[in-house]
Amino acid sequence: MALKDFPREEYVLQGNAACAGCPATMALRTVLKALGKKTVMVVPACCTAVIQSLYPTCSFDIPVMNIAFEACAAGASGIRAALDQQGKHDHTVLSWAGDGGTYDIGLQALSGALERQTNFIYICYNNQIYSNTGIQRSGATPKGAWTTTTVGGKQEFRKDMSEIIRAHHLPYAAQASASRPLDLFEKVKKAKDIKGPRYIEILAPCPPGWRFGMEKTVEMGDLAIDTGAYALFESIDDNVVFNGKSKLILEEKIKPKPIEEWIKNQGRFKHLFYPKRDEKCLAEIQEHYDQMWDRYRKEYL
């Protein structure tokens, strides 16, 4: 599999309302290339509801249903049932929600749908904030990050959503990144052929929300993986397999870069470096990720 083998069809049309350098459309293009035309998308309140653009036009060339923030997975369950009634078993139902709609508000509907073994794909594109409403703190925001509701930096660590999802023992769960389209494409393709609930989380570095230049979207996603702030793995029937650089970090073949290399490029962490270096907070953040990898090694190696 190489970039040359990617399908040429475009389902995200040009001239949409996304910000310049948006990781959500970047990832969505790859995801829809993998899923193909026979896809129905459910979008709760999130950036993508805006990217869709205004009535009477739509920027996605597939059927899309907009639904309330907390009801994404519930809406997908309904659509799945309707498609099954019509005999359209080969259609894929895709829930495309942000981290606010997954980590915080949509969690109960998602948990319910996973427990009911609904046959659908849930994709959370995780930009670690409520970007759409103006950069508020979410359950996915890492410690120390500035948002409009955590002006001095967030005090708490982010929650480990993939562990919560994996506790439902679903057939397929994965973490991917918008900066690795090949890996993302293969994971979505694999998920498409599995029956039952499937969950994929995509790291989406948001230029206006993370406060970095819009040309660095891909660079930031890559650095998150290189520094160990984010891990690429997939879990098939509870067997966790790490891939890419995350596999090398897990097996201690390479040392992850210091976390500082990732956060110093982001304006949301600027208060940790200027006017004075906040050594205590930086050490805490580094220790948090070290502990995360220690836990991964203990459980999955």
Binding site: L13, G15, A17, Q52, S53, P56, T57, C58, S59, D61
Partner: peptide, 17 residues
């Protein structure tokens, strides 16, 4: 009903940004 239909350039010519 409020069905939107796919169209290129839903937000106009974004090249002006």
């Amino acid at each position: 009903s409020c069905i939107s239909y796919p169209e290129e350039g839903a937000m106009g010519k974004t090249g002006s940004w």
